[in-house]
Design a protein around this nucleic acid. Structure first.
Lengths: 322, 322
DNA sequence: CTCTATATGCTCAAAATGAGCATAAAAAAC
DNA sequence: GTTTTTTATGCTCATTTTGAGCATATAGAG
């Protein structure tokens, strides 16, 4: 019987550059220009690799010449049919996905590897300029709800969409990134929905949102986004993305980039300083417009002083703040 | 080359009965009375099981006759050497661990299966009666710190122990259950430390804490505990452990049991009612000492109204509250 | 010197939190 | 049947934490 199991590792490697969250992507070996972007992935060598994390670091170093700092296991994806190549009798593909945070750096090796804006793949997750692309998926969702068999099912769909996309009293929840992707998938609002049904997506603008990815990699990306957003709140992971010394605005921009929502500047400063997450260096940022900002550094000691030190991001309410 | 990979599923099945968190355990097939307790585990049938979760439900049903409700993937454990049976050329064991929450129910099949108090395995995690067993591990940790090579390393160990066990300004953090287990493992304060080094644990009382488990199952249990504790705060998972109708004290006791800390009764009530997590039924609990308590039910609508609805557990400060 | 762009300090009201006091309503003890 | 014990529930009060905004400081550009 034993249909074999193949285990591989996927990495969502995130950086933030110029206010944009960036993700490292590759083209599949079956290279032709139209091949979809994929997340970097590599094998576990059951013989040589003592732990999954070491395996991951090893092949990321080899494939992209990147030395990743913070690494965290995300989720193990193993549904049957993830890989169409799996076919009838092929091996069952099990992927352990990891999240890694780095300061963006030139990609050395791997000609196919490339940093891209993470929100190109999930534009509805970026609410920094108001609802923007989040609103853009609404028509599709409405059509989907209307096409429901029966009015009870229609109601359910409407409620689910409203909840996911922050159109209820609960407001927008950045943490629900995965639920949103799964909803869009179900609603046929992303390219993968049609690919997996082996049909052409409906024509017309705005019918599918964001750039598609190979296999279920966009789902993995959504999972990663949800995880960082959650983690930010109670672990000082942002600092993995910053140089050792930074201004409070730089810090804020990174939190905003990942959270996908704008933050109130003065309150952010109060929060971050009040939590004693950072300490001033006494040095100031050179040559920038406006009053020079003090350079801060991460205060490692908070880890010993506070529970769950992190940047508590407020619920994105109705209005955009500035 | 290909050293094969074997994938199995582990389940931490939790219930709370009479104020105690309970975990379903089994004896290994290699049964003799002294065999260590283990978590239930089962295979993935790559052919038949469409998803890991379905596989899990299937063999739990078969093995223990239990129908689990809430299920959530915890972590994938794959370090080399987890299973000593792995040996030199044996297959590499990869385990995907799941957390399941159920109302405790009789265990049907599986003669070896048995509910046990979760805190028997990790007694230091129970702070409901003050520091209790948490303090009991302190001497061992102190010895461990003192045995450090060099005073810098000693300081590091002391700080780490202080942080993990809430002896810093940060206080006790229920969420750090895994860090604590790993610290104890390193410090030789749990039976597994000695088992894995193939040595006898030092004699004398209080040298190893809690009841040991097979393989790395106690680590998995600690992971599960950390996860539920975190999840409680922003998802209404407690209700999975309660009958459809319950008193606020029952609810509080379950939260306390899982969090491992005592809560202020009036404030808990205010919190839970204020968050509109529950609604009164107008019915009252029959025959109990004291004024009869109203029966409440979970308000499912809260999911649509609030972000991250859950029971925000306060940081366990210095003093025990009643 | 004025304008523009940031940085940073500070205030104020509203909401959430931590700790208790007080009262209500039942069963148990006498 | 009265008192005691036990739990439920209502309410207060000080403190802290948030959300929002006003005001001032300090740079470069024109």
């Amino acid at each position: 019987m034993a249909r074999p199991i193949v285990l591989n590792l996927n990495a969502v490697i995130l950086a933030v550059t110029a206010g944009q969250p960036r993700v490292l992507t590759v083209r599949r070996d079956t290279d032709h220009a139209s091949a979809p972007w994929a997340l970097p992935s590599g094998p576990l060598d059951p013989q040589a690799d003592r732990t999954l994390e070491l395996a991951l670091r090893r092949w990321i170093r080899g494939q992209a010449g990147i030395e990743v700092g913070y690494v965290e296991q995300l989720y193990t994806f193993a549904d049957r049919g993830r890989d169409p190549g799996e076919g009838a009798g092929g091996p069952r593909l099990v992927s352990v996905a990891y999240l890694a945070l780095v300061r963006e750096q030139p990609v050395d090796a791997a000609p196919g590897a490339q940093w891209q804006n993470a929100y190109d793949f999930v534009p509805w997750e970026d609410r920094r300029q108001g609802a923007g692309d989040t609103g853009a998926v609404n028509p599709t969702l409405t059509r989907w709800a209307l096409s429901a068999p029966g009015s009870a099912e229609r109601r359910t769909r409407e409620e689910r969409a409203a909840l996911c996309f922050g159109r209820t009293a609960a407001g927008w929840d950045g943490f629900m990134a995965l639920e949103r992707y799964e909803l869009l998938y179900e609603a046929g609002a992303v390219q993968e929905s049609w690919r997996d049904r082996e049909r052409e997506p409906p024509s017309g603008t705005g019918r599918v949102a964001g750039v598609g990815m190979a296999l279920d990699h966009r789902r993995i990306l959504a999972t990663a986004l949800a995880r960082v957003r959650g983690k930010l709140k109670y672990r000082p992971v942002v600092f993995e993305l910053l140089p050792p010394t930074f201004t409070l605005l730089q810090l804020q921009r990174i939190v905003e980039a990942l959270s996908g929502i704008p933050l109130h500047k003065q309150n952010f400063r109060r929060l971050v300083e009040g939590a004693r997450l950072v300490e001033g260096t006494g040095r100031y940022q050179a040559s920038a417009p406006g009053r020079p900002a003090e350079l801060f550094r991460f205060r490692r000691d908070v880890l010993r002083e506070r529970q769950g030190p992190g940047v508590r991001v407020p619920a994105a309410g109705r209005r955009a703040v500035r």
